[in-house]
Design a protein around this nucleic acid. Structure first.
Length: 391
DNA sequence: AACAACATCAACCGCGGATAA
DNA sequence: GTTATCCGCGGTTGATGTTGT
């Protein structure tokens, strides 16, 4: 594709933005929205390319950006989601609503990655480096399973994302009236397609697949809610640590392994929502997210043997997976514990008991801690905005 | 005080997906 | 079906600040 670089025009300014430029961009977007980024600079009187303007807006000028130190909870979220999603920063950023993907990426590269490496954990696989070694030298099958689980999550992620898109499109077409009703709850959408604004806007699409929707994915086991809610991992409100844990029932070797206990959860979650100072939309998010756990059932009922294909992930019969093994072997229990030990993280110390391990002892707790680690990840998944890039 | 090494993060670059023509 | 264009994403760079010698 012969696309020319967007900044190849001579005379366009590059480098750091001046306060005057910021002011111009802000003023223009506040008044008109950004519309087409490419056309914006000329209209706003900026000697910049549209790309540069978009970046400046999404990473710096956007009003809903939280700056400054990352909380312990945010760190945990990043680490857990990175274990699941890899370097999909934009997807991770949807769970940290006031952080930009760029900021998260930077923080990962400058802080978290180094910390994990220092602890002997491979920041890519989130496994102790010894494990990684074992896997490459043809060690036991458990390390393989851990890798497979990661792949499985990615496949599942892709599949669900596609489903979500189909459903959204269908519903947008057939329920425009409904759509209006829902979107009316939000501020006028116009301008921004900036990262968060776009997410918010997209998320207003009706989600009724599986509830009489006219386009239900044949393979979908999801139940999307009417309103999507903003991510509930927002700092200060509710985070992974304050959510009820999904419990893996069963142990390794059992064909029942991987069943997730969720009975009675909804009540608990609602109770949680009402007992805290959650804003209404966050409460909604919690309730909506309750219908999301079925995907995890799918995920955990898939054979770990043989090559992973989208097809192999669709079926949920005749396949069994030893999730217990994967969890035990696949991810380290250390990383979150260690982060608590960092002196600069003391602000969130009270959360550490649920941070995916809780215990400070290694060795005998390793087994349990990895379960908790995955519980945390699964909680994140469950609390995901249903249209997030993650799914 | 001067310099080097390291850390941080805003901004750029180039690629790929989506979509309009 | 093909091409051109826009947008968003992830990787990387480089300016600036901080710390150590």
């Amino acid at each position: 594709m012969g696309r020319s670089p967007c900044c190849d025009k001579v005379g366009l300014k590059k480098g750091p933005w001046t306060p005057e430029e910021d002011q111009k961009l802000l003023a223009y977007i506040e008044e008109h929205g950004h519309g087409s980024w490419r056309a914006l600079p000329a209209k706003a009187g900026l000697q910049r390319c549209g790309k540069s303007c978009r970046l400046r807006w999404t990473n710096y000028l956007r009003p809903d950006i939280k700056r400054g130190k990352f909380s312990l909870q945010e760190e945990q979220t990043i680490i857990q989601l990175h274990a699941l999603l890899g370097n999909r920063w934009s997807a991770i950023a949807t769970h940290l609503p006031k952080r930009t993907d760029n900021e998260i990426k930077n923080y990962w590269n400058t802080h978290l990655k180094k910390r994990l490496a220092k602890m002997g954990i491979d920041p890519v696989t989130h496994k102790p480096k010894n494990d990684a070694l074992l896997a490459t030298t043809g060690g036991d099958g458990q390390s393989k399973n851990a890798a497979n689980l990661s792949h499985m999550a990615q496949w599942e992620s892709a599949r669900l994302e596609a489903e979500a898109r189909l459903v959204r499109e269908s519903k947008l077409r057939s329920h425009s009236f409904h759509h209006q009703q829902i979107t009316s709850g939000f501020p006028p959408p116009p301008p921004s397609t900036s990262a968060s604004a776009q997410i918010m806007h997209k998320s207003t699409a009706p989600w009724t697949a599986g509830i009489g929707g006219d386009l239900e994915s044949p393979t979908s086991t999801l139940t999307f809610s009417e309103n999507n809610a903003p991510p509930i991992m927002s700092s200060g409100n509710i985070g992974v640590n304050s959510m009820p844990m999904i419990e893996f029932v069963g142990t390794s070797g059992s064909s029942e392994a991987g069943i997730i206990k969720e009975e009675g959860e909804q009540q608990d979650w609602k109770g949680l929502g009402s007992s805290t100072n959650l804003q209404p939309e966050y409460k909604e998010g919690i309730e909506n997210s309750l219908s999301f756990t079925s995907s995890i059932h799918d995920m955990t009922n898939i054979s770990m043997e043989g090559p992973w294909t989208p097809e192999s992930l669709r079926g949920n019969s005749n396949v069994h997976v030893n999730v217990g093994n994967s969890m035990e072997e696949g991810f380290t229990n250390l990383l979150l514990n260690d982060s608590v030990d960092q002196p600069d993280l003391s602000d969130g110390g009270k959360d550490s008991e649920n941070s995916g391990g809780g215990g400070s002892d290694s060795g005998s707790d390793y087994y349990q801690d990895n379960k908790n680690y995955w519980n945390s990840i699964l909680n994140l998944v469950n609390s995901s905005p249903s249209n997030s890039p993650m799914f």
